[in-house]
C-alpha cells in the first residue's frame, strides 16, 4: 500500500522532469537549463563548499527566529487560551498584524535592525509567531468540555490541569502550529535573503541572477523546496512521536451534548 502511495506521488515529478528535459533540449535561448547542467552546477557548488555554507547559514537563521517565536508564541497562546480576558484586549490587534505578510515589514525592519542578522531574525520571528500563537490558543479551545469536567470531578489543582490536561490535549494543535510556523518562516527567510543578504539560499539565487547563471538559480530553488519538505517531514514525525493518540481517539472539535438535553 505504502509503495503504491510513493509510486503515485512520483508520477507527477517524473512527468515534470520529462517536460523539463524536452523543453530544455528544444530551447534555443538558454532560458531553461538542462537537468544535466543543473546536476553539474550542484556538484560544482558542493565542491566549492557553497551549498554547505548557504544552507547552514539559512538553517541557523531560521532556527534562531523560529526558536524565539516558539518560546514566546506557545506560552502566550496557552495563556490566551486559559485566561480568556487577555484575549478580549489583545486579539483584535493580533488579528490585524497577522494579515500583514512578513515581506511587507522588510524595508522597515532593515531600517530598524540594520542589514545584518537582526532584520532577518525579526522577519522570521514575525512569520512564525502568529501560526504558533493562534494554534496554541486553538489547542486549548478545542479541548472537549467532557475532559474539563473530569478534571473538576477529580479536583485537579491548577498545576494538574496544566500538566495532565491542557498541555497534552493541546499538543497536537501546538505541533500543527509549530509545523506551519516553521514552513512560514522558511519562506519568509528566503524572501528576506533575496532582498538584503550576503549569504544564505536566497542570496545564492540572487547572486546567480546577477551572473545570469540559470543553472545555479534552479539549484537554489530546488534546495529550498527539498529542505522545506525535510523540515516538514521532521515535524510530522515529531507530532506522531509526541502525540501518538491524536486523530484516533481525542475527538477534537466534536459536538458536546448539551446538559439540558441529556436525561
Amino acid at each position: 500500500m505504502r509503495s503504491l502511495k510513493v509510486l503515485k506521488g512520483a508520477v507527477f515529478p517524473i512527468f515534470i522532469l520529462i517536460i523539463w528535459l524536452l523543453s530544455s533540449r528544444h530551447s534555443t535561448n538558454n532560458l531553461i537549463p538542462a537537468p544535466n547542467e543543473v546536476i553539474n552546477a550542484i556538484s560544482n557548488l558542493w565542491a566549492r563548499g557553497e551549498i554547505q555554507k548557504h544552507v547552514s547559514i539559512s538553517l541557523i537563521r531560521v532556527l534562531k527566529g523560529f526558536g524565539w517565536a516558539a518560546i514566546i508564541g506557545v506560552p502566550l497562546g496557552l495563556c490566551f487560551g486559559v485566561f480568556t480576558k487577555f484575549r478580549l484586549w489583545l486579539m483584535p490587534t493580533l488579528h490585524f498584524l497577522r494579515q500583514i505578510p512578513p515581506i511587507a515589514w522588510i524595508p522597515l525592519f532593515l531600517i530598524w535592525f540594520g542589514i545584518g542578522e537582526g532584520s532577518k531574525s525579526a522577519v522570521i520571528f514575525y512569520a512564525a509567531f502568529f501560526p504558533v500563537l493562534l494554534n496554541s490558543l486553538l489547542g486549548i479551545e478545542q479541548i472537549p468540555r467532557r475532559f474539563w469536567e473530569v478534571g473538576k470531578v477529580l479536583e485537579f489543582d491548577y498545576l494538574k490541569f496544566l500538566w495532565r490536561l491542557v498541555l497534552p490535549a493541546s499538543l497536537p494543535s501546538i505541533m500543527a502550529g509549530l509545523r506551519l510556523g516553521m514552513s512560514m518562516s522558511w519562506r519568509a527567510l528566503v524572501a528576506a535573503e533575496m532582498i538584503a543578504a550576503t549569504s544564505g539560499l536566497g542570496y545564492l539565487i540572487m547572486s546567480a541572477r546577477s551572473l545570469v547563471r540559470m543553472d545555479e538559480m534552479v539549484v537554489g530553488i530546488l534546495l529550498i523546496g527539498l529542505i522545506g519538505i525535510l523540515i516538514d517531514a521532521f515535524f510530522i514525525w515529531l507530532e506522531r512521536f509526541l502525540a501518538p493518540w491524536n486523530k484516533e481517539t481525542l475527538g477534537v472539535g466534536e459536538n458536546e451534548r448539551s446538559i439540558a438535553s441529556s436525561g
Binding site: E149, R164, L165, P168, L171, A243, W245, S262
Partner: peptide, 11 residues
C-alpha cells in the same frame, strides 16, 4: 462515573 468513560487518551 460518566456515561462515557472520558479517559484521557494520552495516558
Amino acid at each position: 462515573v460518566f456515561q462515557d468513560p472520558r479517559l484521557f487518551p494520552w495516558l
